[in-house]
Amino acid sequence: MKAFVIESGKLKVKNMNEPQAKAGEVVVALKTAGLNRRDLGLPKRYGDRPEELIIGSDGAGIIEVIGEGVSRFSVGDEVLINPALRWYDNSDAPPQGFDILGMPDHGTFAEKIALSAEQIEPKPDYLSWEEAGSLALAAMTGYRALFTKGELKKGDTVFIPGAGSGVATYLIQFAKNAGAKVIVTSRSKEKLEQAKRLGADIAIDTASDWKEELAEETIDLVIDSVGRATFNRSLEVLKKGGRIVIFGATTEDNVDFNLRQFFYGQYQLYGSTMGSRDELRAMLSHIEEHGTHSLVDKVFRLEDAQEAFDYLAEGKQFGKVVLQISE
């Protein structure tokens, strides 16, 4: 089978042996797979090891083989893959043994994948293959950050710096589904317009004076994945006693902030990453209830995976970048 791998420090498409289903596993013939920013950093993390690693965390396809002991699924079922490995019950933090699919385990940028039947869920019928294959990681991350950690409720105002990421497109839609007011930022006028079409109530330039632009707003919750470039600016517009949830750091990881101002403001700071199977299933119920779709920016063939990587690295996308594995 064809797969997109890291081998000796390089990314390449090459032929690999087809996976076999062990007891408790299934083999999924993948239709599509979604790229995530996590994937961009894997070559550096994996290093120069000569053993091939198939990367990729998101995917959707059709069950081709059922391993011994699997009773919940059948050959021919349409499924999507849960990339949060071995995290089943909702908890304050991931349990011991938690990993993300695609390193150290072989991932989804391949024609087939074998994995535990505990890591797949039925594909929502109304989603296209492109939508389903790019859904789980970003949408589950957004769902946990917004509802489990951020405790968003109807009537709240949520502020989301950076409007174009895959997670942000779900955050906007989920928050609007819940009856919240949504404010986003971007440096791109095109992305600001796209965010408004998606449901954002207010969309402002990242380079503007946020305190001035939002002087009339009461922001209950900030969901920030940018990091050092926006953290303190986000705190400045958050109401006293408000909540800020961090699920990523696309700029520098380390942040300096004034502790005295923070504790006098009674702010609440939460870290979040990915989500449990409970939250994935809750998210799937949420999108089906509201008819929410994934926003797919661009689709590439598996053979053009390097081009897809380069496109994602440029950061020009609004929504998800997807690999088409098979017709």
Rank of each mutant, 00 (worst) to 15 (best):
V5G: 08
E7I: 11
K14S: 07
K22P: 01
N36A: 14
L40A: 08
G41A: 14
P43C: 05
P43N: 08
P50I: 07
D58I: 12
G59F: 14
V65Y: 04
E68M: 03
V70Q: 08
S74C: 09
V79I: 11
P83V: 09
L85N: 01
R86G: 00
D92E: 14
A93G: 02
P94K: 06
F98D: 04
G102R: 03
G102E: 07
H106C: 01
S116E: 10
A117I: 04
E118C: 00
D125E: 13
Y126P: 02
T141M: 03
Y143F: 15
A145F: 01
K149I: 01
G150K: 06
V158L: 10
G164W: 00
G166Y: 00
V167W: 05
T169A: 09
L171I: 13
L171D: 02
A178L: 12
G179K: 12
A180F: 12
I183L: 11
I183P: 14
L192A: 06
R197M: 10
S208R: 08
W210R: 10
K211I: 13
K211C: 12
I219E: 10
V222N: 03
V222S: 01
D224C: 05
F231K: 08
S234A: 14
L238C: 07
K240L: 08
G241S: 11
I244T: 02
I244L: 15
T251K: 07
E252I: 00
D253W: 03
Y264C: 03
A282M: 13
H286Y: 13
I287Y: 04
I287W: 03
E289C: 01
H290G: 03
Q306S: 02
E307T: 13
F309M: 15
